[in-house]
Design a protein around this nucleic acid. Structure first.
Length: 285
DNA sequence: TGCCCTTTGAAGTTA
DNA sequence: TAACTTCAAAGGGCA
């Protein structure tokens, strides 16, 4: 049976692998078809590798019309040539010639490594195209190590210093980083045409920061510090004491038992119309 | 395990 | 067009 998406007969390939098990093909025995139902591991790997190369569009460097299998996708070197679908008998590489053919067609080394799509958030994090660094980020990236901060210094503190140093830069020095950032941005556009930073929305690890800002705008008057004052810290919730988000706020937010009967604007006096919309939607939910 | 801290700026979305 | 939102980097602290 020829696979409909393959330009060669994979079953013939497997058959040939299986027909000459004693001719030192160097294919691990566990990767040969064992006679059971379904494809063998080797067959599966061939298919996976073919699909990968189709995705990469890298079909130029191959032999007998099929890209070579290369690490890290296969734990062993390719030792047999896949066969064209409409192959004649002379097109078939005899098993004893396979190693010669492979030597004349060394595995492609410069195939870019593209990870297979994965459902895991961590792998998605590694796979997504990241935003190019802006001028300040480039400056901070290069100068953080030079700052010589003591081990254990919080990055929040380091970045405060970086922000201060950024402001202290002369226009000429700052322009240098602006130009680097612009160049990188252009290269990024060339490399990923059509990509938009919005594609990463919701994928970054720090995506919740804004929610906290919204929450603080939402009920700034209800935090323990504001409610009871610094002199009454014994009345604060433990989260406020440890400088975390106020327990009182969280409970009043989630329970929805607001005592206010006024308008949305009354409930969230410090909110902009946009934030009000978000907040009122959340209140309904 | 993953959010939080903190900075500036680019680029997107929304009103 | 202004205002707002998200995300780039870094690594320790903390729930």
């Amino acid at each position: 049976m020829a696979h409909p998406n393959l330009p060669f007969n994979i079953d013939l390939l497997i058959r040939d692998q299986v027909q000459y098990p004693d001719q030192n093909l160097s294919i691990p025995i566990e990767m040969r078809q064992g006679g059971g139902p379904g494809p063998s591991l080797y067959q599966t790997l061939v298919l996976m590798n073919y699909q990968r190369n189709m995705l990469l569009g890298n079909l130029t460097q191959n032999f007998l019309g099929f890209p070579l299998l290369t690490p890290p996708f296969l734990p062993f070197p390719i030792l047999a040539a896949p066969l064209p679908v409409q192959n004649s008998p002379e097109d078939v590489v005899a098993p004893e010639d396979i190693n010669n053919v492979v030597q004349q067609n060394p595995p492609v080394e410069d195939v870019p490594y593209v990870k297979e799509p994965s459902k895991s958030p961590e792998k998605e994090e590694n796979q997504r195209i990241k935003k190019p660094l802006n001028a300040f980020m480039r400056f901070a990236y290069e100068n953080r190590p030079k700052l010589g901060a003591e081990p254990g210094t919080r990055f929040a503190q380091i970045n405060k210093i970086m922000g201060q140093k950024w402001k202290e830069l002369s226009p000429e020095e700052r322009q240098k980083y602006v130009e680097i950032a612009e160049k990188e941005r252009e290269e990024h556009k060339m490399k990923y045409p059509g990509w938009s930073p919005a594609e990463n929305y919701g994928k970054a690890k720090t995506k919740k920061r804004t929610r906290k800002i919204i929450d603080e705008k939402r009920k700034p008057e209800k935090r323990c510090r504001a409610r009871f004052g610094m002199e009454n810290q014994h009345l604060w919730c433990f989260k406020c004491l440890s400088k975390k988000r106020c327990t009182y706020q969280e409970s009043s937010t989630s329970s929805g038992n607001s005592t206010s009967t006024g308008s949305d604007a009354d409930q969230f006096p410090n909110s902009t119309p946009k934030i009000l919309k978000i907040l009122t939607q959340e209140s309904v939910n």
